[in-house]
Structure formats: C-alpha cells, structure tokens
Computed example of a mutant assay.
Amino acid sequence: MNTTTQPLRAEAPLAEPVALYPSPLKEFWQAFSRNKGAVGGLLFMLLVVFCALFAPWVAPHNPSEQYRDFLLTPPMWLEGGQAQFILGTDELGRDLLSRLIHGSRLSLLIGLSSVLLSLLPGILLGLVAGFFPRLLGPSIMRLMDIMLALPSLLLAVAIVAILGPGLNNTVFAIAIVHLPAYVRLTRAAVMGELNRDYVTAARLAGAGLPRLMFVTVLPNCMAPLIVQATMSFSSAILDAAALGFLGLGVQPPTPEWGTMLASARDYIERAWWVVSLPGLTILLSVLAINLMGDGLRDALDPKLKNAV
C-alpha cells in the first residue's frame, strides 16, 4: 500500500503585538487638543514665534526708520491711511507693524530668559528645602515668604531702580520676582513624593542623595512646574511691559511693547492706534499663553487628562 506524504505546512507568522496604549507624545497631544482654546493659543504663539525668529525678513520696514512725511498715519483701512503702512505709523513716523514684529523678539526673549533664570534656582532651592525640612528648609521658606509679602511689580521696580534700567536688569528683576513660586511649588511636590514606595526602594537600593534628588524625585515633580513656567512666561511679558511703560525696562528707540505704550500715551486721544495696537498685542499674547497653560494642565494632570 502506497503511502503519500503530505508536505509540511509552514507555520503562520506570529501576529505583531498590538499596541494597547498610545505613545506618550500621542497621548499628550490627544489630551491637549481636546482644549480648543489651548490649540488656538498654540497657533497664535507659533505665529508670534515665527515673526520673532524671522523679523528682519517679515517686517516690511526698518523699525527705527523715520518717515517724516507720514507722522501718525492711521492704519490703511482708515481715512488717510497708506498702503505701505498697514497698521499706521507712530509719532516719529516709524512703521507700527515693523516695530510690533521686532518687539516680539524682545518680549519673548525677556519671558524665556526670566523663566529659565527663576526656574533653575527655584527647583534647586525647592529640592534642598524638601529634602532637608528641618535643617535648611525653614530658612529658605522664610526668605521666600518675605519676598512674597512684597507686591511683585513693586519689588521688580525696586530692583531695577537699584541696578539701573536696561534689558539685562529687567530680566534679572523679573526672575527674582517669580522665584518664590517655583521654590514653594517644588518643595510641595517633593514633600509629596518622598513618602512614595519608589523613593523608599531607591533608598534601600543604595541611591545617593544627588541621584534621589535629580533622577528619582525631580522627574515626577515636573508636570506642575511646566504648567507654572507657562503661566510665569505670560506674567513675565506683562511685567516687562509694565517696567517699559514706567521707563525702567528696555530703553527707546529699541522696539518693545511696553516701551511703545509709554511713548504713545500722549497721543491716545488723536491717534488711538498708536496705543491700542501694542496693548492688543500684549493682551492676545498673554491670553494665548494662559490658554496654552490650561491645555498643559489638562494634558499633564492624570486626574484631568482622562476626563472627556
């Protein structure tokens, strides 16, 4: 009896594992994009950042060039406006749109620099206060309480008045004003994490103090710090504009939104655009950053990002 052998069938390849959870970046964007206001704020700030980075090519005119024949020219859609000056000119005949675009560079620079100068020392002091609650914590927190007892703008004005007006001193003054918020927030987050099981396990595994502070605990405290940094960014822009309006910030003729407001306040009755447009730019920028902060809070807070 003939027996026929059946060819062996090739085994079907194993199915690729199905990703049960989205990537962290995709999950973050899904939670962030649920907040339509945050997405709108992000788009507006991307436009501002683009104008700041490419200001020499985006601005239609030199921000310091004076057109003596076009003093206080209204925007192009009003009677008497000129097509070459879309948003009009100021009291010296300088193009407002070009000055607003170049002013965004300084405003963003002041905001970013002051946030970094206050965030990094604030995190370090907050970690020290949290890890040494009896030795160094009380003295650090009492110093922060004294700084918080003073009005923020008054403290910034006092610092700039002592150091002198200018860009660098403005950044330093705003950073000092925002420092206590980071110290207190970092300390509170660290105190909440020190009793967790993973910190106890790291201690038992022989992790040193620097590793515990910067590798084990700090990454788990970054979510509220990121949100606070976003909010401080908008506050720094407002503080810089306030100092510029008082004549203690960036000095003219350098284009800066607060300085533009200060130089135009005498013309508010007969040339509203000279004051309204810089003020509207500050308003929209701060509003956009605050909306982004709300979106970051919703995306980074585990209690909120899963809520539909």
Rank of each mutant, 00 (worst) to 15 (best):
R187A: 02
L225T: 01
L243M: 06
G166Y: 13
A201L: 11
A207F: 08
R196K: 15
L194D: 09
M191N: 11
L155P: 08
R187W: 06
P180H: 12
Y198S: 03
R203S: 04
L125C: 04
P138G: 00
S234P: 03
L127P: 01
P252V: 00
R203D: 02
I176A: 13
S234W: 05
L127F: 04
F214I: 04
V250P: 03
V199T: 00
A188P: 09
Q251A: 01
L154V: 08
V217K: 08
Y198P: 04
A242H: 14
S232Y: 10
S139P: 13
L143P: 00
Y182E: 02
L143Q: 03
L194W: 12
L127N: 00
R184H: 11
I162M: 12
A188W: 09
I159M: 10
T230C: 11
V171Q: 07
G164V: 01
L204N: 07
Q228E: 13
G206N: 02
F131H: 08
V128P: 09
L163M: 14
E193H: 13
A189P: 11
A240G: 15
A189E: 15
G249V: 01
E193L: 15
R187H: 07
M213D: 07
N220T: 10
H178W: 14
V190F: 11
V183W: 12
N168F: 14
M141E: 15
L243H: 10
M144A: 00
T200V: 10
I159K: 12
G164N: 08
S232M: 10
A181S: 13
I174W: 14
A175G: 04
M141S: 12
M141V: 07
M222L: 15
V227A: 01
V160E: 13
L246C: 11
A202I: 00
L153E: 03
L194C: 06
G247H: 13
T200C: 05
Y198F: 14
R184D: 02
L218C: 06
D197M: 11
A129H: 11
P224D: 03
M231S: 06
G208W: 11
I237A: 00
L148F: 11
N195G: 06
L148S: 06
S235Q: 12
G126C: 03
L212I: 04
I146V: 13
T216Q: 14
G166I: 06
P165I: 02
D145K: 08
I176T: 15
A205S: 13
G247V: 01
A229Y: 05
